[in-house]
């Protein structure tokens, strides 16, 4: 056997030893300790008993992102109407279709806001 092949065999043996040891170490860490006797039967009840009777109230700040977005959309649609009217966009079939779409969107948002307001009252 040449020196080179001997060296390869030794290296392989070393790597194999390391691999086996790694596996053994991992097996030991994976083994879950048996602590059944360390956990008192009434542990959960005792922890719960330490909880203050009045739970601190979490203050939640109400946001109105949706409502704000809807008003912004209404404003944007109004601007779009004005621009369309100034440019005479309704004279062409495509322009008329776009105008109709904008009207429907405006109507839908207005109805939505109206219903929300009615429910809130």
């Amino acid at each position: 056997m040449s020196d080179e092949s001997i060296n390869l065999s030794v290296d392989d043996a070393v790597l194999e030893m390391e691999r086996v040891l790694d596996e053994r170490i991992v097996r030991e860490i994976e083994r879950q300790p048996d602590l059944a006797t360390s956990i008192p039967a009434d542990f959960a009840a005792r922890v719960a008993a330490q909880i203050p009777s009045k739970r601190p109230v979490a203050v939640v700040e109400t946001t109105h992102y949706g409502r704000t977005a809807m008003w912004a959309s209404l404003a944007a649609l109004l601007v779009a109407f004005v621009v369309a009217a100034v440019r005479g966009a309704g004279h062409s079939p495509i322009g008329a279709a776009i105008e109709m779409t904008l009207y429907m969107q405006f109507l839908a948002i207005a109805v939505w806001l109206g219903v929300r307001r009615w429910r809130a009252s």
């Binding site: 300790p33 602590l35 542990f43 719960a48």
Partner: peptide
């Protein structure tokens, strides 16, 4: 509080063994 006791009961084993290790 009863619900939190349940949370404790369900997770106590995991907490004990993690702390132990």
């Amino acid at each position: 509080d009863l619900s939190f006791e349940q949370v404790v009961r369900e997770n106590q084993a995991m907490v004990f063994r993690t702390l132990y290790r």
